[in-house]
Structure formats: structure tokens, C-alpha cells
Nucleic acid binder design. Structure first.
Length: 291
DNA sequence: TACCAGGAGAGCG
DNA sequence: CGCTCTCATGGT
């Protein structure tokens, strides 16, 4: 039986230059799973199934939907891919990356979920991050309505929920030394000491500085939150993959100081530097896997 | 089995 | 400062 028959709401969004698989599976978000021809996951407190076909994304939810803005925002449906990639520097590396990753988009995620999952990402492979997040959600997420033929859906546990847990609870989710960091962040957010909503109105440098006060949040994780949750294009997370890509493509494989790479990134990639970063990341990882 | 993963932070020289 | 070591766990 087609799932469309049991979905409570369904809507088709025409898109162009949108690679849904690359977007949902490029290390920005860690909860999407392949479901038939599409993807199923949770956005906020909603179970969603997404499928791309014939220039449109079809979305199905388990509950009725009055307003789809939450989905349009998450998927950044209003972003113009050609316009964004058109601002990239006119050099061979970026041209190759854009060619290889046509339709790759940045998502706009919930700040708490994004910050928390990237705290958990430290020195972890993507498959392992997904695993940790899955355990955390299964144990402490809120049960969400989902179609009958799907396993029970869970929300990402809110900051107050996580703040009420113990380090032992979190370690049992296989997150190891990241447990006290996640707990500390949850407590800071739950207590109001750190107002994630207010960061949206602050300059990137100030928001970054606020995030980096948290234990377990350095420059890289702060920049991931700034880019993937707040859409800050002047955030340019440099991880091992981006570092490899920059060294190989722009520095003749030489060893380059991290701070120097950040300077280069800030001046070279233009007004959508954050977007460019995601292209370099995905492009470099694709080549590694021989895909 | 051994190695290493989308870091951060403490400790050292 | 700038470098090295450690942290926890599981995939490959």
C-alpha cells in the first residue's frame, strides 16, 4: 500500500537544482533514513517523509498541516541554487565541486538540535554520530505520531529534557567523553544562561563567542551551528575534510596553518562562503569513497 | 587486530 | 604561545 494513502497531509513543492539525497546525507543532519524511493525523518515535532521526483519534492506527514513554512524553512526551498553557486569564485576547484555536487543545499536546522548533535560529532565518524543520536532520541525523545507501517518516531530531546539527565544516562548512549559537554550545554540552554534564540539577532562573531563559552564547543562546532542552524554564511567550519580539500585544491598539498586556512576562506569564497564550504566537504568525501 | 574518526582542552616546553 | 597528548567508543 502506498504510504500516501495513510499520510494525513501531503504536499508537492516544485524545485529546481535540488539534490535531496545529497542534502539530507551530507553530514549536516544525522537523523534521515532512506525509505523506499525517499527519505523519512523528524523535523521538530513532526514525522516527515520526503521524496524527490520530476522536479518536485513531495512531503508527507503523519498529522494534518495547516502551514508548511517549517518545511520550506528547513529545506531552504526559497534559496536560489544557481544564484548562490554563481557567486563562488571562478576557479577550477570550485567549478569541479559545483559540477560534482549539483543541487546540494544547506539546511536550516533547529539551533538546539544542531548544536547538540555537533557536540556529539567530535572525533566521530558520521555513521557513529548517527548511531549516538539515534540512541539518544530513542531513549529520551518525545513519541511522535507516525504512519502505522513506520517504527515509532521520536523527537530530538529538548534541552530541558537532556538537562534533567545524568552524565551516566548520557554515557549509556555511547557518547563517551562528550557526555559532560552535552549535559553542560543542555543546562546552559535550559537555565536561560545561553539564549539560543537571541543569538539569531547578534553578529556572527559575538554569537560564535557565546557558543564557544560552552565546554566541548570550539571554533569548528560553533561554526557548524552558526552555518547549519542560523544560516551564517560567514561561518566556515574547517574540519579534516575541508582542510584536506583546501590544502589539495588551493595550497598544492602543503601543510597550512589552520588559522591561515580560515583567513583564506574568509576572503576567497565570497558572500556564500558557508555554502562553498559544504561543497568542498561533500566533494572531497565523495572522491574519497570513490563514488 | 589495529587503526582512526567532521575536536576540544589541558599541559607542557 | 604552539605543540602534543588524552579523552570513549565502534566501524572498517
Amino acid at each position: 500500500m502506498p504510504e500516501s494513502q495513510i499520510a494525513a497531509a501531503r504536499r508537492v513543492f516544485p524545485v529546481c537544482d535540488y539534490d535531496l539525497a545529497a542534502t539530507l546525507n551530507s553530514g549536516q543532519a544525522f537523523r534521515w533514513t532512506a525509505a523506499g524511493e525517499g527519505w523519512s525523518g523528524v523535523i521538530g515535532r513532526r514525522w516527515v517523509r520526503l521524496q524527490l521526483a520530476a522536479g518536485a519534492i513531495t512531503a508527507e506527514t503523519a498529522l494534518p498541516v495547516a502551514d508548511w513554512i517549517w518545511l520550506a524553512s528547513y529545506l531552504q526551498l526559497d534559496a536560489n541554487w544557481a544564484e548562490i553557486t554563481g557567486t563562488f569564485p571562478n576557479d577550477a576547484p570550485m567549478a569541479a565541486a559545483v559540477r560534482a555536487c549539483r543541487g546540494l543545499r544547506l539546511l536550516r536546522q533547529d539551533p538546539w538540535e544542531c548544536l547538540a548533535t555537533f557536540i556529539l560529532s567530535s572525533t566521530k565518524q558520521i555513521v557513529q554520530i548517527r548511531q549516538i543520536v539515534a540512541i539518544l532520541c530513542a531513549r529520551y525523545g518525545e513519541v511522535l505520531p507516525a504512519p502505522g507501517n513506520h517504527p515509532a518516531a521520536r523527537s530530538f530531546p529538548s534541552a530541558p529534557v537532556v538537562a534533567a539527565l545524568t552524565e551516566t544516562d548520557l554515557r549509556a548512549c555511547r557518547m563517551g567523553f562528550r557526555a559532560p559537554s552535552l549535559l553542560g550545554a543542555a543546562r546552559a540552554v535550559a537555565s536561560g544562561e545561553l539564549d539560543l534564540g537571541a543569538l539569531a539577532g547578534r553578529p556572527t562573531s559575538e554569537a560564535r563567542e557565546r557558543l564557544m563559552r560552552l565546554r566541548g564547543v570550539g571554533r569548528k562546532i560553533a561554526d557548524c551551528a552558526l552555518l547549519f542552524a542560523y544560516g551564517r554564511q560567514d561561518a566556515f567550519p574547517v574540519d579534516v575534510w575541508v582542510m584536506r580539500a583546501l590544502r589539495e585544491l588551493y595550497f598544492s598539498r602543503r601543510e597550512v596553518n589552520l588559522e591561515r586556512l580560515r583567513e583564506f576562506a574568509a576572503t576567497h569564497f565570497g558572500p556564500y562562503a558557508g555554502y562553498a564550504q559544504q561543497y568542498l566537504f561533500h566533494y572531497r568525501r565523495m572522491r574519497e569513497r570513490g563514488a
